[in-house]
Amino acid sequence: MTSNVLIIGGSGRIGRSVANDLLRHTEVTMTLTGRRSKPAFELQSRQRYQRLPLVDQAKVRDAIAQHDLVIHCAGPFRSRDFNILAQCIEQKKTYIDVADSPDYVREALAFNTVAQAAGVTCIVSTGVFPGISNSMVRQGIEQLDQAHHVHLSYLVAGSGGAGITVMRTTFTELQTPFEAKVNGQTIMIKPYSEREILSFPEPYNKGAGLYWFNTVEAFTLIKSFPQLNSVITKFGSLPDAYNHLTGLMTFLPSSWLQQPTTIEFLSQVSYAMTQVTDRFSGTGIAMRLAIQGYHQDQAVTYLATATHPDTAEAAGYGTGSVAQLLLTGQITQPGVRPVEQVLPTTLFEKTLAERGLTIERAIHPESLHPESLHPDK
């Protein structure tokens, strides 16, 4: 496993988490890129740094040519073009990313036929959510005889340790309603609406609210598992005060939220606030999955939870494990696909176990309402 890996956006918090995971679980050498002439962090063994402005397509093309695997961690993805993905396909270089923008992923998936013809494996949205969350759904569906309803919920403490890009993504996704499949019908959902409180494991059981949020999983899971009648994705922050502040932003005129200057102002203010509150809230993540379906001729609810004290590090696990499996030839599937279509559950469980991330799972009779169950007890 002596391949050369290019981590675009490797100087950011997510990119560095991916790089750290590769250091622990592979023998690859890697190039971390960023906008600055020098990195603002200390490079580790088998790492080098390269200043790589993404607008310089010639330099991007040359950088891709010198590596075997390209991992795209630069965000926010909604405003990115597809030059890197297209170049990887043209140069027959394996590609993965941590894309969290539904708009970006929809357009990226349109490259599927071209990538298949070129024999290039491209896997999108490989972080924690999307990423690990998608594979948790596949894992759960495979435990049931039939699955029809998926409810995914995420709680992130403070900044999640992921930097200001996450703030920009959050405020960007508040701009417009989005489509969701609920009870077999495609409906339009207002972002950050329909607050609810669900049970999470400690220390994430503080009663924080969860709200509808536009996620990649909401549409890729429907395509990957067409038997599903509903895919609900909700998100919330700790402390809960951040949820109320974010919800207030949805009442701003839509034209304001579509202004880059407004998004940047809100992101900078929010990030500054989390730099204070992270000290007592932490930067962890809790994920909760409920799947309603049938098991052994009985209506049941499959319930799974996973937590980690550092959201960015967990994202590194998701992307790093996919990279590890690609580099060792354990997965390969030409085309552009979401992770749940490419990563078998056996390998998903194996790589998470190597990283010490545990998914708590149980199947309950549906006579118990799924939201009344307490996986932390």
Rank of each mutant, 00 (worst) to 15 (best):
T305C: 14
A304R: 02
T328Q: 15
G335Q: 11
G329A: 11
D297T: 08
D310C: 06
M287K: 02
T305Q: 04
R337L: 15
L326N: 06
L343Y: 03
A304D: 09
H295E: 11
P344A: 04
T307I: 13
G316H: 07
Q341T: 15
R337Y: 15
T311Q: 15
T301Q: 08
Y302Q: 05
V342R: 02
D310A: 11
A304K: 01
Y317Q: 07
L303S: 06
Q292R: 12
L326A: 05
F280P: 00
I331S: 05
H308K: 03
T311R: 09
R288N: 13
L326P: 04
G293T: 11
A306K: 00
V339N: 03
G284C: 10
A286C: 13
L326I: 14
L303P: 05
Y294K: 09
L303R: 03
Y317S: 07
G282R: 02
L343K: 03
E313Y: 02
Q330P: 09
I285H: 01
S281T: 15
T305V: 15
T301P: 04
A290W: 00
Q341W: 00
P338Y: 01
Y317N: 10
L343F: 02
Q341I: 00
T301C: 14
T319M: 10
Y302M: 10
A304S: 15
I331A: 01
P344W: 04
S281M: 13
S321N: 14
Q292Y: 12
M287R: 03
I331G: 07
T283H: 08
V336T: 12
A304Y: 05
S321L: 15
Q296I: 05
Q298K: 15
G282H: 08
H295Y: 14
I285S: 09
I291P: 09
L343I: 06
A304P: 04
P344D: 04
H295P: 00
Y294S: 07
Q324K: 14
S321Y: 08
T328E: 15
R337Q: 14
A286V: 07
P309F: 04
P309V: 03
Q296N: 13
